[in-house]
Nucleic acid binder design. Structure first.
Lengths: 199, 199, 199, 199
DNA sequence: TATGAATGAGTGTTCATTCAT
DNA sequence: GATGAATGAACACTCATTCAT
């Protein structure tokens, strides 16, 4: 459960998903061929079509199978209460690991979502869950800490957006340390912790 | 409007760039064919190759030609001083318009940057400029407003990341009003304005 | 006929090779399209690429597959000893048949070899074999007939060159009978048989 | 007149021919583009079409303009009488230089002649001249040396063929010294000079 | 005479997808 | 369930040739 990286069960279908996830992440959707996947999985191309009716369906299988990570990581870090700043640090570290293993995939998915309603709806569903659970934790975590004026749901959205934005900084090539600082500074200021500067 | 010369004659190259920008934005890089572009521009495919040596080069031409927007919009909104919150609203509105006209392009570019060093470097150059100019304005705008503990450069990065993240919320389908609120709430809290709730 | 196995099942690859050989020979490398070959073979263009990774590779397959002819014909004619002049006649007749079925291919290959090191090396390998086996036969055939002053290897090269040169006379349009006479006269004189004029 | 390399007069047309000759020789007909030629000549592609109605016409211009070399070299070497073997040496050296400057062109032309009647006729015309003048010189040079049984015209053809064949040995990569020996050995034996071995 | 600009007609190559075995 | 073999439909890119200026 604490496992972040989607750990598909070892059925043929899941083996394919896992490997495809890797390749799609590395090469991007359009530059990944069914051949790439098949040969890496060690089966024939035709076999892929036994499990997935098309390349797109296979791709869908991936982001529908593994969208728990943000939620799980958020829960695993902020969920345990305690020092908010430290939790934010942990969150960053774990999300970074997640991101690093599939840097391109997220962008690819968003880009595709721009044109694909079905995908957009799926993502929206995921995000609704993210927002809800984040808001809930925010409530607990920051209880009493956040001004009454603010909306936890709204802040949850901001926080998720902020992380997504951090990924763009990483792609562009800013050093992790710098991006982490930006994340923590933003987090600190957003939650009015700035009176307690990090060492 | 910035164009002073009235005999503003679009060169063929710029016409292509503009139209290609639109199509790439709408359909994505890999689903846009040179034929698509050519026929929209109203020339033959071969003509495209007179001006750009490859599809990739044409694509490059686009994101190298118009990366000023964030900078310009930031300057145009926050640059004029005054009410920070109102500026943040203006910024959002203008960036939204920019985003809406090419929603997918940004993600496509980031995705590609994941695998393409040259592109990454170009983007990094742009971002360095963004960060610098944003930090400068932040200094002026928020003079005295931000705690001594915080780093304007770091906050500038966060702010840019935050906007990028907002775009993901938009793609996913959250209503503009909701995203705008998230942006403003985040902005407000980040800059310690929360004592002055927006009406 | 050399094929012993009756269930001589042409593999797809060999079928392609054979047909491609014909077309390349007739139209030349650059004027032969993959479509030409595919449609003559009766498969789709894509199928060609299952067996050969590129047009060039397919072309290579041809001249690497059938370079035995000169060697074989030489062996089959001069190899049997007996009347040298008659053997020379037989050699000519059989080489002519070979040449006539693919007149352009040889020149095409030589032209290409001018610029292509790999091809040059392959050809050189073939020629080394030709020279060696020709020299060997020359030794047997002309034993005692050729002056001690001459080098069989060198004469072998000359003989091969002479045949190659005869092909140029044929291309240019000299009648076969005339070219054959030139070949025989040269052969006769080279091997000191001129005291025994052909009837 | 002793000049071998075709020295076109410096008219625009001839400048083009000269440069085109070089490029065609180096890259082959099909891999030479009109752009290649135009840019090397320093004019626009369209200008080429003022002087030559097509690429093929331009190519024709080349081999119609400079076919004297074999004839001239033969005349310049064997024409002066004297030691036949030494003349054969000189001939080789000068033809080699000629060949070396345009190794591929000859093969290209022969290959093309296979399919192109007009070209074939032109070449035939050239070869008729070659044969005739060579036969004439052979008569003088070898007067009394060659058995009555042989036909100078036929031997002339053989000699020309032999040289053409030598070019194939060169393409294939045999060292010049080796090819030269083969040439001289063949020559020597063909003309019954073998009683006077070269040192 | 010279050319910048344009293009029609290819051309090799790729790839998701199918299907008989 | 698995696959080897096949392919239709594209697609980026090229190039000889034209023509208005």
């Amino acid at each position: 459960m604490p496992k972040v990286v989607p750990e598909y069960k070892e059925t043929a279908k899941n083996r394919i998903l896992e490997i495809a996830h890797n390749i799609f992440s590395r090469k991007g959707y359009y530059q990944t061929t069914m051949d790439d996947i098949a040969s890496k999985v060690g089966v024939s191309k035709a076999t892929l079509y036994i499990y997935f009716s098309s390349k797109e369906e296979l791709f869908k299988g991936i982001y529908q199978n593994a969208p728990e990570s943000l939620e799980q990581i958020f829960a695993a870090t902020f969920g345990k209460g305690g020092d908010a700043l430290q939790n934010a640090r942990d969150f960053f570290d774990r999300m970074l690991k997640e991101y690093a293993s599939h840097p391109a995939l997220g962008f690819e998915v968003f880009s595709e979502a721009t044109r694909n309603v079905a995908l957009r709806k799926t993502l929206r569903g995921n995000y609704d869950r993210y927002v809800e659970s984040t808001a809930k934790l925010l409530n607990q975590q920051t209880h009493g800490m956040i001004s009454q004026y603010f909306d936890p749901r709204s802040l949850a959205q901001s926080l998720i957006a902020l992380w997504n934005g951090m990924e763009t900084l990483l792609v562009v090539g800013y050093p992790v340390s710098e991006v982490k600082k930006a994340w923590l500074d933003a987090f600190t200021s957003m939650f009015g912790l700035f009176r307690h500067p990090q060492k």
